[in-house]
Amino acid sequence: MNSRSTTGFPSPADPFREDPLDINSLLVRNRASTFLMRSAGEIPGWSIEEGDILVVDRSCVAREGDLAVIARDGELALREVASTRIPVWGVVRGVVRVLRRG
């Protein structure tokens, strides 16, 4: 029930209304540059499992300690950023795992 559907009195909460949380706003900062990928294996130290969805942002500037996607032997692979001089495909901003199907 919001003010647009009330026929009687406007809601006293109207001036305080905020948008509900949207998981996209947490994970996706830049829609144009964010791509989703699937982890092909377990990543020790990052609590990432095989099949997890990685949120990869190409517009992030890689910092030391980031988990980044790089091109390795012609394939996309993960790598912890130790030196910012190595070109990266994108930076992993988050991980998504769906626990219950259906």
């Binding site: 791509f35 990928m37 699937r38 982890s39 294996g41 377990e42 990543i43 390795r72 692979a77 912890e80």
Partner: peptide
């Protein structure tokens, strides 16, 4: 359809040294 289909997401390998399943 890498960017429009959940089944088709690009796959990314673990870091060097990590175990593949």
């Amino acid at each position: 359809r890498y960017t429009t289909c959940w089944e088709d997401l690009p796959s990314v390998l673990p870091p060097e040294g990590a175990q593949l399943p």
